[in-house]
Amino acid sequence: MLTLIKNVECYSPSPLGTVDILIANNAVAHIARDISMHSPSLNIIDGSDLIALPGLVDSLVHISGGGGEGGFHTRTPQMQLSDASLHGVTTVIGALGTDATTRTLPDLVAKAKGLNIEGISAYCYTGSYHLPARTITGNVTDDVVLIDCIIGVGEVAIADHRAAEPTFQALAEVAAQARTGGMISGKAGIVYIHTGDGKRQLSVLHDVVDNTDIPASQFYPTHINRNQSLLDAGIAWTQKGGVIDMTTSTNKQFIEEGEIPAAEAVAYCLNKGVPANCLSMSSDGNASLPIFDDVGQFVGLEVGKVGSLFGAFKALVLQHNVSLENAIAIVSSTPAKRLKLHHKGKIEVGCDADIVLCKKTTLDIVHVVARGKQLVKHSKVLIKGMFE
């Protein structure tokens, strides 16, 4: 399977100028100014007036669906292949959240394996909001070591009324288990953290890092754009070497209550001197976004969209004047590096051929290639999931 992208302005995420990109099977085989070859099986993509960037890496998607706050009938649907591919997301990491009762880890792993067959790359976390963590094998370390698609534990909830209010000791223990599993298997062993709007904010993470030998890089807190106070606390966390993640799925009520749009929050952090390699965004796709009335009664919900990640990327560049190089890093190379997905998040020879081709002026997506296979052509879905 050969694909040749001609005359495209390439960002790896660092700018490479106008080049040709040869893809053989699932990997980038060659990048040069002018590649000339002929083969009856060669797929040629005209990259003129387009830019190429690495496929987006979404570090939090409820790929198997999530529980809703309004009862059994409000459980959110599974993610479909085109929910990701149409919006340039070629790598997803699946998680359980509040509901680890009707949503299970075996189902999550099966969904990840199914998405890998359909065409994108999918990984997942063991555990859920609560500690002690639910696992498949009986403990976190064994799940990370023995189950190929599991790369860490999460999303463990802190500072949230739905959390198990994890103690310093409990969080330190699960971090050590995940870290050990990561070391043995060569994976990230990351502890992905759901951060609520409670007054404790990130204090328990500071307690673990300050009182154990576990580094800040072992934790990956998300939802940091919930409010201004939490965002400032997140900036303090990056000063210890940690990364912070902004959530791109939102609704009108969340914004009215003080949530900061993800792109705006990232731009604020960059202006405060936080480096791009300490910042990322994720969609929280297929999560429930509950809507409450004036007295706090549930009245409905919206569903998180994987496509919101690319929308926030565009807003970074077009509305907040963040450089393409930094914006691309925030949605591709930074999460890939933090999750130790070394073959993702960059356009380099030998890396997975996950490439998004966009219009230069509008950043609208034209073509999407994932693991060497073209999934989107001229902004239309070329390959659909099994049940789409």
Results as ranks from 00 to 15, higher is better:
V8K: 05
E9K: 08
P13V: 07
A24F: 09
N26S: 15
A27M: 15
A29S: 12
A32L: 04
R33D: 12
M37R: 15
G47K: 01
L50N: 04
L50P: 10
A52L: 04
P54E: 01
V57M: 04
V57K: 02
S59Q: 06
S59D: 11
L60Y: 06
V61E: 03
H62F: 13
S64K: 04
S64E: 13
G66C: 09
G71L: 08
H73V: 14
T76G: 13
T76P: 08
M79R: 06
Q80I: 12
L86K: 13
L86C: 15
L86E: 14
H87C: 10
V89S: 10
G97N: 07
G97M: 11
T101A: 12
D107F: 03
L108R: 11
V109E: 12
I117A: 12
G119H: 07
G119C: 09
I120L: 15
T135Y: 05
N139R: 07
V145L: 09
D148I: 07
I151E: 05
G152K: 08
G152Q: 10
V153D: 03
A157Y: 00
I158A: 02
I158W: 11
D160L: 14
D160N: 14
H161C: 01
H161Y: 10
T167C: 00
A175I: 03
Q177D: 14
Q177V: 07
A178H: 05
R179E: 11
G181P: 11
G182W: 04
I184Q: 06
V191T: 15
V191C: 14
V191K: 09
I193S: 05
I193V: 12
H194N: 03
H194G: 03
G198S: 06
L202G: 00
V204S: 04
D210M: 12
N211H: 15
N211L: 13
T212G: 01
A216R: 06
A216E: 07
P221Q: 08
L230G: 01
L231D: 08
T238I: 09
S249Q: 03
T250R: 12
T250L: 08
E256I: 06
G258K: 11
I260M: 08
A262E: 05
A262H: 00
A263E: 00
C269G: 00
V274F: 14
C278F: 06
L279E: 10
S280R: 05
M281D: 05
M281A: 10
G285C: 12
A287K: 10
F292C: 06
D294I: 07
D294W: 08
D294N: 11
V299R: 07
V299N: 09
G300Q: 04
E302P: 00
G307T: 10
L309W: 05
L309D: 07
F313M: 05
K314Y: 00
L324E: 01
N326L: 11
I330W: 03
S332P: 04
P335G: 04
H343A: 15
K344H: 15
K344T: 02
K344P: 05
G345H: 00
V349C: 04
V349P: 00
I355W: 01
L357H: 01
T361G: 00
L363Q: 01
V366N: 01
V366P: 02
A370M: 07
V376A: 03
V376E: 09
L382R: 10
E388I: 13
